[in-house]
């Protein structure tokens, strides 16, 4: 599973402005809706449903909100680096500043889980997170994400 099949340079947001978890999810949903043509509200609701089950703030400043949408043609990711860390109700109660949004078609099945696992593994890498935090342009962030492929392979 390639990270580059999930995100493209246009889906990398280098300085997302948000003051709350809800606002961050809204912004991400808006961005995803713009590019995929999905209904913004539908995306937001799916994400919110998943957060109600339990936070996707996985610790160490990382959040991986995700969900499934029937209307989506393929796996779709958005990577955002927040301008300021926000409270995401993360399991370690630390503020979050790196978010990887992953949306999957209803029919993706095992591919959805594989993609999620790939993202989770990528962001568990502490040195990768440090590099991402120290980078401020979309192209450079994308280059870092793409370069992780070479290492993983």
């Amino acid at each position: 599973m390639d990270i580059t099949t999930l995100v493209s340079p246009e889906n990398v947001i280098p300085n997302l402005k948000a003051t709350s978890k809800k606002q961050a999810l809204q912004e991400l949903a808006r961005h995803a809706a713009q590019i995929t043509g999905l209904n913004e509200r539908a995306v937001f609701d799916v994400l919110l449903d998943r957060e109600r089950l339990g936070t996707t703030g996985v610790g160490n400043g990382i959040a991986i909100p995700h969900g499934k949408l029937a209307a989506l043609p393929r796996l779709f990711g958005v990577f955002a680096r927040l301008e300021r860390p926000i409270d995401f109700e993360a399991i370690d109660e630390q503020p979050v500043d790196l978010i990887f949004l992953l949306l999957a078609p209803e029919s993706a099945g095992a591919d959805h889980l594989k993609a999620l696992a790939r993202v989770s593994r990528l962001l568990r890498d502490r040195s990768m997170c440090e590099k991402l935090r120290a980078t401020s342009t979309a192209d450079a962030l994308y280059a870092l994400l793409a370069a992780s492929e070479a290492q993983a392979a």
Partner: peptide, 16 residues
């Protein structure tokens, strides 16, 4: 509140 490091290390996502 402690930094719940144990929970972070045990799994990808944690659900109540």
């Amino acid at each position: 509140k402690d930094k719940k490091t144990r929970r972070v290390a045990l799994a990808d996502f944690v659900i109540p």
